[in-house]
Amino acid sequence: MLILPSLLLALGVIGYPFYEIIRLAVSDVSRFGMVRGFSGWENFNRVVSDPVFVDALVRTLVWTVTVVGGTILVALPVALVLREDFWGRGVARTILMLPWSIALSMAAVVWLWAFNADYGMINAGLQHWGIIDKPLQWMARPETAFPVEVGIGIVVSIPFTVTILLGGLSSIPSEIYEAAKIDGARPWQSFWLMTLPMMRPFMNIAIVLNVIHVFNSFPIIWVMTQGGPNNRTHILVTYLYELSFYLGRPGPAAVVSLVVLLIVFSATAVYMWLREREG
């Protein structure tokens, strides 16, 4: 009884769109969303044979791995430092949590301006310090635009990740470190042998939640490059959005949705299986 409303709402708002997507995926749909008839695998074939799709699929994996990997690599040492007792720790924590408060889309707008070739502060700074001699057109080439987007992806993921890791660190009793110290363990040894293993569940959850989030992250790339130039910063979700609402191809877009859903489901299944196995 008590969970019924939650089931209904979730089923309605998730189940019905899901049904619609399956229906569109196997239909011939016009630009204006009219279902003209059943088309079987045609949309699937069109999508799979589109090099942009394959490209976006690969890029999605690169995007997810680099952003999540980068986030963890930065967040772990930061969390370790923030656990230490030092002057101004509260201030440092507050500052590092700040990116959380900017909407992702707005953060992307601000960064886009910071990276503006002519008037942005990034080029101005780099020129000032003599690192580059003329303004770099950051967003004009995928070779520079995409790494910039990855970097921003990392920066905005850090607050959440640090929070989880800090929570994990605080759950490790400090006595065991003192005991280890008495037994003559060096700091890196106690990090490697005690902190890391005890942090594992927290690392896992941080990785899983970040993967879900980053995999589906739409605003940064959409606002900064819309998948261009030449489709070379597309990830699946931006490609899917462009297909359905800009190129007027709802059928193939629904197929891309399904593919992404399939990936998400299998990742979830693997994760649950891992959890079960670990008990």
Binding site: E20, N216, L240, Y241, S244, S257, V260, V264, F265
Partner: peptide, 10 residues
Amino acid sequence: MLSPILLVLG
């Protein structure tokens, strides 16, 4: 796990 963007069309 389902971000709305995946179902946005639906």
